[in-house]
Design a protein around this nucleic acid. Structure first.
Lengths: 241, 241
DNA sequence: ATCTTCCTCCCCAGAAACTGCGAGGGCGGG
DNA sequence: CCCGCCCTCGCAGTTTCTGGGGAGGAAGAT
């Protein structure tokens, strides 16, 4: 397999993905993909909304350092992809800011390539993941490579996330519990700045009733207070502001 | 051309999608895709969870009736796809329940095919859309057709949604005034359920100081209260919970 | 037919958050 | 050098939220 080849045997890869039945298989598949592509790193990174992370890939100790340092909060790749729909070249992200530059320096020192290409993927309940390629080369080479493989990579990322969703053990049971229509309305109004009286008035119900909805939603979401509940509902995609 | 052909000229279609610069172009592209595929209907449906909808497709008056009747709330396709990641054949959805069956009967009476295949797509800020094919044929034919075209359809749906996101008028990227590091920490802690005392303690500052951060963030975000501010910070990707 | 879930309404007291006032030191840019 | 922004801290009064009760009707599911 040569240097930065096109995605090879896409069919075979996706078939292997579909027949995988353990997270360890994913690690193997991702390493195979890295070798076939000829890039330095391939990483799948699950950004769980409660701060936990799951990932597999070829970053090695950088992944450990990343988690230890809490880089998730300042990583411009995460920040940028979270607001985008399409795959993004790292060069197009906002690397201004002291923290971002320090992060980048640290990353490169720990073996991450100077080039990167990340595909955001979103699933139900606000799930968010990143499928990332990283490599060391010049801009033109990287540009050509990503353009050639963009569509195939989108598909691979999609199937990879599908399998990861299936296999992920931490499928929070409480996340499955949906909110009732009234609860959604109530939470949405609170999320856009209404206080309880205003929200109740908007829904033409008593403030007490609205309170019941909010409490019910808070219970379902496992939240400690209203702000927490609204944050969780937003993170899980149950409401939209 | 012909009956239910494979996705033809995928490259050309995606190129047309990428060069589209108006929502009307999308309507044309979707009609072309329907003709090329040889299916009865192709529909792109933007489901905003606050009740607003945008769609384009070939449903004609059914789309109007759908909106008028508020079918969004009972449509098993929407309900089912919202909880799923992968494309889904309508047969695999839950059609039990009186409302669902009545809805299905009404749909078929208004020209919707007895077969359907819907691809859920999710974008930033909880955006959710459906890309749907519908047709009239037997189960085996439909099964074979969707299996053959699954990957191409996923890609088309992805690029279609990307363009729809670009062209959607309601995209007001409000000046994302950045929060200071301390403000981000404070808002993040509140978003994960801490109250002000706990958050202040965690940051090793006085509760009053924390309050100042929250007020400052609230002002920057144009929010009316803490809950609102946290919701906005989350929506704009300023904090990650 | 029964059971669960949802929607609606009520009271009260304590805890927490909001509003508005003010103050000082540090750090970087014009 | 001054201006603006960030970080830090205090008091007091008012409003809002939280948590504990209870209660009845309507709809859908088993």
């Amino acid at each position: 397999m040569g240097f930065m080849a096109n995605v090879p045997r896409l069919d075979g890869l996706i078939e292997r993905l579909e027949s995988a039945d353990a997270l360890d298989d994913l690690q193997g598949i991702i390493e195979e993909l890295r070798d076939d592509l000829g890039v330095d790193h391939v990483v799948y990174h699950w950004v769980n909304s409660n701060g936990q992370q799951y990932g597999c890939g070829t970053y090695g100790d950088w992944a450990v350092r990343y988690a230890e340092k809490g880089y998730l909060r300042i990583d411009p790749v995460v920040q940028g992809c979270f607001q985008r729909f399409h795959p993004v070249d790292w060069k197009r992200l906002d690397w201004s800011g002291k923290a971002a530059r320090a992060f980048l320096r640290d990353a490169i020192e720990h073996g991450v390539g100077n080039q990167g290409f990340s595909i955001p993927i979103r699933g139900p309940n606000g799930q968010f993941a990143l499928f990332t390629l990283s490599h060391n080369c010049d801009d033109d080479t990287w540009e050509a490579f990503t353009e050639d493989n963009r569509r195939d990579l989108i598909l691979v990322a999609h199937y990879f996330n599908q399998k990861a969703l299936e296999l992920e053990p931490g499928r929070t049971p409480e996340a499955a519990q949906p909110l009732s229509p009234r609860e959604i309305e109530a939470m949405t109004l609170l999320a856009v700045g209404y206080n309880r009286a205003q929200a109740a008035d908007t829904l033409s119900i008593s403030e007490h009733t609205l309170r019941v909805y909010v409490e019910s939603a808070r219970f379902k979401l496992g939240a400690m207070n209203t702000t927490h509940a609204v944050a969780r509902a937003l993170s899980r995609g149950l409401i939209v502001v």
